[in-house]
Design a protein around this nucleic acid. Sequence first.
DNA 1: GTGAAAGCGCTAACAC
DNA 2: GTGTTAGCGCTTTCAC
Lengths: 339, 339
Amino acid sequence: MGITIKDVAKQAGVAASTVSRVISNNPRISEATKKRVRKAMKDLGYHPNIHARSLANKSTQAIGVVLPSSDKALQNPFFPEVLRGISGIAHEQDYSIYISTGITEEEIYEGVKRMVHGNRVDGVVLLYSRVNDRLHDYLIENNFPFVVIGKPYHQIDAITHIDNDNITAAKTITNYLIDLGHERIGFIGGDRDLVVTLDRMQGYHLALEEANLPVKEEYHIHEEFLKSGGQEAVHKLMSLTEPPTGVVIVDDLMAFGVITMLDEFGLKVPDDISIVSFNNIYLSQLTMPPLTTVDIHIYELGVQATKCLIEKVKNKLEPAKRIIVPYTIIERNSAVDKK
Amino acid sequence: MGITIKDVAKQAGVAASTVSRVISNNPRISEATKKRVRKAMKDLGYHPNIHARSLANKSTQAIGVVLPSSDKALQNPFFPEVLRGISGIAHEQDYSIYISTGITEEEIYEGVKRMVHGNRVDGVVLLYSRVNDRLHDYLIENNFPFVVIGKPYHQIDAITHIDNDNITAAKTITNYLIDLGHERIGFIGGDRDLVVTLDRMQGYHLALEEANLPVKEEYHIHEEFLKSGGQEAVHKLMSLTEPPTGVVIVDDLMAFGVITMLDEFGLKVPDDISIVSFNNIYLSQLTMPPLTTVDIHIYELGVQATKCLIEKVKNKLEPAKRIIVPYTIIERNSAVDKK
DNA sequence: GTGAAAGCGCTAACAC
DNA sequence: GTGTTAGCGCTTTCAC
């Protein structure tokens, strides 16, 4: 089952290599034969076999996308949204996308190894950055093209990465709350292993310090990104004798969970407590109240990452880059003046 | 860069073919040499090159996943969620996942052609079913293994598909509204080209007819699945002189849009109008109010589809199947008694 | 139980 | 400008 390059060659009355050259649009082939060969390809319904091609020239036209280890990473709209950006560019440049998932860290590590050694993909984009991530070391050691979305914890100058300025962003959004008159401001973070959590926390601290507001340990909660985590967090926070009047949450999805939970306590956002968060996933405008959040331009992160990766794939010597995608504060109705 | 089967062979003091047999766990190889070869593989850090393998035996260990043509299909949590199901099983069975997107119907058609003829994948799963979809014909003509999530419009007995009983589900959820005392019930559907829209609409009609309720054309609106569509729909519907008191919406995400829009009109769900919808995406419980919706077990759709596909890939003669994943009505707070 | 050799479909020297 | 040839890394007869 398959029309091969030989069939096309025969049909067009040329050698297989000529057909190959036509495919790669080699300038040394005359327009006349190009036309003839193309016609033959079309008539026969020829499609090149990528495996043969990859075997011969050691390049797949594919990039690997690595999701964080979890069985539900895809539940956070952040990932589908970066994926959209990635697949937009990949498609445009005729690259296919391989997705690699795994529910344990070990599984995803193995998956990447298979991708790399098995020559499945030309490069990979990591959709997250973990503290001391051995994947980074592994990819560097193997001199395999990759980019990370987020900020690498080590070797930051050696790794091309696309990130937001999460420290400043967090500082800005915290200041937003401070300017509204809030003095007791909580923080609900995600996985402490993720660099993004650390950065946003740092920005939050910076803002408090500059405003001479106390950084209280008990206002400070870490859980997973998803809903259930958010709910636990709220429970702890609101049981305090002096609960915060405003809270910075690292992720919109988590913020939804928090709002719902508060509702169960009879607390309304923003009347009883103000909330700001991050990401501006498309749902943030649909909730009640719509969220005041930091738009980090997720789609753009995917686009830039993919562009960089493809550059790097095409030219291994391409220097490591850092691209900071600007953020935008989206003011909606989840945070108000402290009364 | 690359340890090949020859390196392993040399290291283990055997021929390449022996190594190959060890990889495929051929019973004719003695346990002793197996052990020796495996050790060599491990010591050398050997990983098979899939392209070479695919070339030689015409099988990739990969399945293709086809999203509907759109630049934002991934925005609807339905797709990431099926993808989770798919990747769970695929991973378990050591298949990789290729995703194919495209923003026009033509692009995705071409993408599938490349997958099929280029021998990129062993089979594909289509995540939607469109009326008169030429992809179905194409795949059948080429005798290429595929399954569809949803109900094929034609050749239904020749195509393995995983679906819900959307007609009955829609009828049931409409009856739910009727039992609550609603008599003026609207319907907001998605793309009319999608079989799922048609089925759910039919169920809605059936319920109205059985209850001797009039099927009014003006209660009946079609738009795209996403937010903007939902908003337009509401605008039309609520401008009626006798607006509905309840409405059936084919998609949770669309329902969110509707709720928000109603809010802008000063109408509250469920006090002023009741809403029921479909899918039970994880956000349906987080909105205010939480949605009464039909849980169609999206994850399970992905799981079943992938299992069927892999069976079919392994055995081309596997008969066409239909698997109906049961639905569950999730009662929450978006629909109440008509007062 | 294991080795030798041919070949999967393509590309990339090297010829001319 | 185009043909010839030798692999790419693996699987799979066919020998022994």
